[in-house]
Amino acid sequence: MADSDSGTEGVDDDAPEKSREELRREVDDKYDFENFGPEDMAEMSLEEWEVAFDPDSWITGTELLDRVEADLKHRIAIREVFAVVERITRDGEPQLAAYSDEGYAIVYPDGSVEGRGTVLRDVKPTVALASMDEYEVPEMPEGGQLPQPDEVTEGSGELGNKLMQTIGAIHVLGGIGMIIAWLLIVLGVVGVADAVRDGAPLLALVGGAFFVFGLFVLLIVANARLSDRFRSEEYRNRLRSAGVESGMRPDFLPVDEKDQDD
Rank of each mutant, 00 (worst) to 15 (best):
F82D: 08
E9T: 11
G174A: 08
I176D: 08
G175V: 01
T89N: 12
E234Y: 07
G61K: 03
E9V: 00
E34I: 06
R24A: 12
A242D: 06
L64T: 02
D28Q: 13
P16H: 10
D32G: 04
I106M: 06
A83M: 10
L202F: 15
L65I: 08
E9Q: 09
D28T: 01
M41I: 15
D110V: 02
D13G: 05
D13T: 15
E142R: 14
D66Y: 02
I78W: 07
M178F: 10
P94Q: 14
P201Y: 04
S112Y: 06
T118S: 15
V11H: 02
E134L: 10
M140L: 03
V172M: 02
R90N: 00
P141M: 12
I180N: 09
M1G: 05
F252D: 04
V119G: 00
G243A: 13
G174H: 01
V217W: 01
V123P: 09
N35P: 13
V221Y: 10
R90G: 12
R225I: 04
R121V: 08
T166Q: 07
S112E: 10
E158G: 00
G10N: 15
M140N: 12
S57K: 03
L202S: 11
V189T: 12
E50C: 02
V189I: 07
K73E: 10
G160S: 10
R229I: 02
Y135C: 08
D122V: 02
N223K: 11
V192N: 06
F211L: 14
D101S: 14
D198G: 03
E34S: 15
R231H: 04
R229H: 03
L65S: 05
D32W: 07
V255N: 09
P94C: 08
V123I: 09
G188K: 12
N223M: 12
D150W: 13
A169C: 06
G207V: 04
V51N: 07
L183N: 09
V51I: 03
D110Y: 03
L215I: 01
L205F: 14
K124R: 15
D122Q: 10
A105G: 13
H74D: 01
I59N: 11
L129Y: 04
P138I: 03
F82S: 10
A97C: 07
E257A: 12
L159S: 14
Y135P: 00
R75H: 09
N223D: 09
I170Y: 11
V84N: 08
S6L: 11
G117I: 04
I59Y: 00
Q145Y: 14
W58K: 11
A98Y: 03
G208H: 05
L183K: 13
V85M: 00
D12R: 14
E154P: 05
A204S: 03
D56R: 11
D262K: 06
S246L: 01
V189D: 08
D150P: 05
E154M: 12
E17P: 03
G243F: 07
D5L: 10
G174I: 01
A70Y: 05
D101N: 13
L72Q: 13
K30E: 15
A209I: 07
D66T: 01
P147E: 11
F230K: 14
E22H: 12
